[in-house]
Computed example of a mutant assay.
Amino acid sequence: MKTWFITGASRGFGGRVAALALERGDNVVATARNAAAVTERLGDNPRLLAVALDVTDETQAQTAAAAAIDRFGAIDVLLNNAGFGLLGAVEEATAEEVERLYRTNVFGLLAVARSILPYMRSRRSGRMLNISSIGGYRGAAGFGVYSSTKFAVEGLSEALHAELAPLGIHVTVVEPGYFRTDFLDTSSLSVSPRQIEDYAASAGLVRSRAADLNQRQPGDPDRLAKVLVDFVDTPNPPVRLPLGSDTVAAIEAKHTSDAAILTAWRSISVSTDFATD
C-alpha cells in the first residue's frame, strides 16, 4: 500500500489517478482549492483524505503535508498535477496573466515540493511525478507563456532528479500531449482577451484550432491514469516520461531540427572557446 499526495485532484488527470489509486487499495491525500469538490468526485473512503489546498499558498501546502503525515504516517508518491493553460500570443498576454500562470504552474509546484520533500528525505524514499506537457519540450505559437512555465517544470525536475536520486527519491517529469480532458475548457484554459491582428496567422490560428480540438484530442486520459498508477512501481524510472503519440512525434521532430542546427552551425558554435596551442 502506498500513500499518494495529489494536487488538482478534483478533475482531469489528478481525479482519475486518485480514483485508480484508491481502487487498487492505496491511500490518497487528494487536494484541490475546494475540498468538497474532491469528495464529490471521489466519494467517501477511509483511505481518502480530502484537503483544501491553493498551491500558491506555501503555508497551506505545509499544513496539507502535515495533515497527510498525521493521517497516514508517510507520503510515498507526490503527483504535482495542479495547473492551467494560457492561450494567446506572448505579446498579447498581460503581466497579470503571466504572473498568475507562474504562481500556479511553477511557484505552486515548488511550494508543494518543498513542503513534502523533508518527509521523503527523512525516510530516504519517495516518488515525485511532475506534470509537464508536450509544450514543456517544444514551444509553439499561441501557447508561448504556458510553454515557458512547463519548460521551467522540466528544468526543475531534471535538477531535482539529480539532487534526490542519491537519497532514494525518484523524480520524473511527465509530458502528456493532447488528451481528452477539460484542459481546453474555460475551467482549465485562460484565453488572453487582447488580440493583435499581426498574429492572426500564427497565435490567432491556434485559438480557433484549440476550440475545434476540444474533446476531440487523440489521447485517452483513462489510459494515461493507469500508466501513472502502474509507473510508480517501476524500479528505475526515467527522468522524463512522454505520453501520447503527438508528444513522441514532437520530440522526434525537435531532435531532427536540433541535429540539423548543430550540423549547419557546428564550426561557429565551437569557435567561441579559448584558442588552444
Rank of each mutant, 00 (worst) to 15 (best):
P118E: 08
E97S: 11
S271N: 10
R223Q: 14
A264L: 06
A19M: 10
V174I: 10
G73A: 05
G15I: 01
S202E: 04
I169C: 12
A66K: 09
P242C: 07
R11T: 12
F231E: 06
D212K: 13
G168N: 08
T272C: 12
L117N: 01
A19C: 06
E91F: 00
E91Q: 04
A66G: 14
Q217I: 00
L49N: 00
S271K: 03
F107W: 13
T59H: 11
L213A: 13
V232M: 10
P218F: 00
N130A: 03
R100W: 10
T59K: 14
S269M: 13
R121C: 07
Y119F: 12
D246M: 11
L22T: 05
G155M: 06
R127A: 05
T31C: 15
A211L: 13
Y146R: 01
I6E: 03
V17K: 09
T59N: 15
V232C: 09
D54F: 01
L22M: 07
D220N: 15
A61G: 14
S133R: 07
G139W: 05
S147T: 01
F231C: 08
P176E: 06
N236H: 12
A250R: 05
D258C: 12
G15M: 07
R100E: 12
L189A: 03
Q217C: 09
N34G: 04
A249Y: 01
T56M: 08
A113Q: 12
V90M: 15
A35C: 12
V28Q: 10
D57L: 07
F107L: 14
A200N: 13
M1E: 09
T263R: 14
L109D: 03
V112R: 07
F72N: 03
G25E: 03
I116Q: 05
A18M: 05
A249T: 08
F179D: 00
E23V: 01
R194W: 02
A52K: 02
A50W: 05
Y137R: 10
P235N: 14
E40S: 15
V106C: 14
F151L: 04
I6K: 09
R138G: 11
E175S: 03
I134W: 08
L20G: 00
N81K: 00
R47F: 04
V227E: 15
L262Y: 13
A140V: 05
V77R: 07
A36I: 00
P238F: 04
A203E: 03
T247H: 08
A52V: 04
A165D: 11
L224C: 10
I268D: 12
P176I: 00
V171K: 07
P221Q: 03
D222H: 13
A203F: 05
V270E: 13
A259R: 10
F72E: 01
F13N: 14
T3E: 00
V17R: 06
A82R: 01
A93Y: 02
R16C: 09
E252H: 09
A32P: 11
S269H: 12
P176W: 08
V171F: 04
R24A: 09
V90A: 15
E58G: 10
G177C: 07
A275I: 05
A250M: 11
A30P: 06
W265H: 12
E96N: 10
P46I: 02
H161G: 04
D57Y: 01
F231R: 06
H170K: 14
I134K: 10
P118W: 07
E197G: 12
